[in-house]
Amino acid sequence: MQGSQEVVVLRYGHRPGRDDRMTTHVGLTARALGADRVVLPDNATQAAETVADITDRFGGPFEIEQTDSQAAVVRNWDGPVAHLTMYGLPIQDVEGEIRVAVDTDPLLVVVGGEKVPFELYEHADWNVGVTNQPHSEVAGLAVFLDRFFEGRELSQEWSDADRTVVPKATGKKVVSSDDSGDDGA
């Protein structure tokens, strides 16, 4: 989130055909809820393209990268690492500690897409559980980012947007930079 700690989300693993939608949603959630960039596996090209398209249309700043070695990203990270897993410590018990630790260093938030190697659990500074129940990694990322930013990400401003969603009690309104808006039902 601009003006605060740098937060990068790493999608660890991607099974083409099975994880396409979930990996896309990890990227979109990272963008919408305050992360500065997402690093996706190199075989998640469609997800990377979709997140880049949304960033182009609805604004940034937000960066999308791809890598052929998620393990190297974790191993070489210059800052603390939080790994989201249902086996981790409850977020409510570690969120303050994480916030303090990343005051000046960039935070890497790792979101698994398949079984992650045990070395990731060992390398992470925190293995964080958003409940200790099976659920969506997208939900875990959303709760983690909201708790980490203490809700500030919900009023984030976006620059260079071609489209802006106008909040309404009912209906839909999206204003394009080249027109006055499109009301939908």
Results as ranks from 00 to 15, higher is better:
98 I>G: 03
175 V>R: 02
166 V>H: 06
149 F>G: 09
45 T>H: 02
94 V>Q: 02
7 V>C: 10
162 D>A: 14
62 F>C: 05
171 G>R: 07
26 V>I: 04
56 D>C: 13
13 G>H: 03
167 P>C: 14
98 I>Y: 08
138 V>P: 05
11 R>T: 00
25 H>T: 07
101 A>D: 04
111 V>R: 04
30 A>C: 02
179 D>C: 04
126 W>A: 01
20 D>G: 10
173 K>E: 07
97 E>T: 12
35 A>M: 02
23 T>G: 01
95 E>G: 15
96 G>S: 10
156 Q>G: 11
145 L>S: 03
116 V>W: 05
36 D>G: 09
117 P>G: 06
124 A>H: 05
18 R>S: 15
20 D>P: 03
62 F>T: 06
119 E>M: 14
148 F>Q: 07
181 G>Q: 00
121 Y>F: 15
30 A>S: 09
110 V>E: 02
61 P>C: 09
170 T>Y: 12
40 L>V: 06
43 N>P: 05
114 E>H: 10
2 Q>S: 15
40 L>R: 05
24 T>S: 03
120 L>T: 04
142 A>E: 05
9 V>N: 00
175 V>E: 02
74 V>R: 03
64 I>Q: 07
139 A>H: 08
9 V>F: 01
150 E>Q: 14
126 W>K: 05
101 A>W: 05
23 T>K: 04
148 F>W: 06
150 E>Y: 12
135 H>W: 09
94 V>K: 08
150 E>G: 12
45 T>P: 05
151 G>C: 15
173 K>G: 12
86 M>T: 10
172 K>G: 02
31 R>P: 01
40 L>F: 04
